[in-house]
Design a protein around this nucleic acid. Structure first.
Lengths: 188, 188
DNA sequence: TCCTCATATGCAACTCGTTGCATAGCCAAG
DNA sequence: CTTGGCTATGCAACGAGTTGCATATGAGGA
């Protein structure tokens, strides 16, 4: 159900089209909730038919027309209601960890490249987050003081930064372990 | 596709029934991959029909019969093949983060209890992981030296521990932010 | 005796999410 | 002038995951 709520939050922050939402889900919102454009278009249509959103068809010059969605009363109420409900803490879904345990039944060194690749992705994400933090929250161009919405966006971004740092450190640990096992006598 | 591979890993570590796998997915394997018993039974049946697993019907006294699954040749090959493929790094799914950003459009203090509840869950998980680490890997009752499989299980568990510690620290940050905003003048 | 709990397996219906494909307008480069 | 790229929206089919329900055995307690 959370895609619906992620869309409400994003559209309250700023109205936009399905295409624009899909872009936001590649940055910003997408740091902690992902969705493809097909999913977004489908849910937007449903939410509009349920009266949570309003559409405005905008003809643009030099571009195809778009439909701009914005949150209306019942949508705001739905979000508020959801905020008052409790959700259950995240359950893990870490495919790489499954692979690492699986490596016991093959040659552990086959995973070294894979783990290095993941490590690089997380390093890039961290750099991206840090640049965003500087631009929007802690740099000289950032507004001072931050309003409540910006403070909350910032604390979520700090979570992303902490997650990437933790992950990079862990992947270093994994690499050290795989390399150590690689030089030991084989097993199984 | 990863449920299939998580099952292969778990059954290679030790053969077992659907019920037993479901239990393992509540501990151990479940720390980084979750599944319900319905999902497990369905996939076991499919994997058996594809020749990845073998079944043995065991009649037990004082308990209903069970079907014990174990990995056979093609299953081992399938796992090995998967280990050589590359997967794409995890995409986040953090519902609480959506809520935190959404709190900008309601009273941020409504989230304080919710975040405190999540924090407690993570503290409990951390304690549980640390107890498991002591029991299986670092305590006096642990085998020395550890074999490759145990080393790999340990490094995965260290990842879980690092994740929980990071999350608890972040939730403290979130709580401090929510409390600070709660004492500021309202917004929106 | 009846109820509940733990073991053990499964179906049916549903929602959520992914993948591949299709369409269409306009721009810029070759 | 054709091709590729970006904006913009959408269908169809499939696969993954959840929820509710159903069934059966046997243990232990009220």
């Amino acid at each position: 159900m959370a895609l619906e709520h992620a869309i409400l939050v994003s559209l309250l922050e700023k109205p936009g089209s399905g295409y624009e939402l899909a872009r936001r889900f590649e940055r910003s919102i997408g740091y902690f909730w992902t969705a493809t454009h097909q999913q977004i278009y489908r849910v937007l249509k449903r939410m509009e038919s349920e009266g949570l959103l309003a559409v405005r068809e905008l003809s643009q010059q030099s571009r195809p027309d778009k439909k701009e969605y914005s949150v209306v009363g019942p949508g705001r109420t739905a979000l508020s209601q959801w905020l008052h409900e409790s959700i259950q803490p995240e359950s893990m879904r870490h495919e790489l960890a499954v692979k690492i345990r699986g490596a016991a039944f093959d040659d552990p060194s086959v995973l070294i490249r894979e783990v290095e690749r993941h490590r690089q992705v997380h390093i890039d994400r961290l750099a991206h987050y840090l640049a965003g933090e500087l631009r929007d929250f802690t740099g000289p161009a950032a507004p001072t003081p931050l309003d409540a919405g910006q403070e909350l966006q910032h604390v979520v971004l700090r979570g992303g930064i902490a997650y990437e740092r933790m992950t990079i450190a862990w992947l270093d640990d994994v690499l050290a372990t795989l390399r150590r096992l690689g030089t030991s006598p084989p097993h199984v």
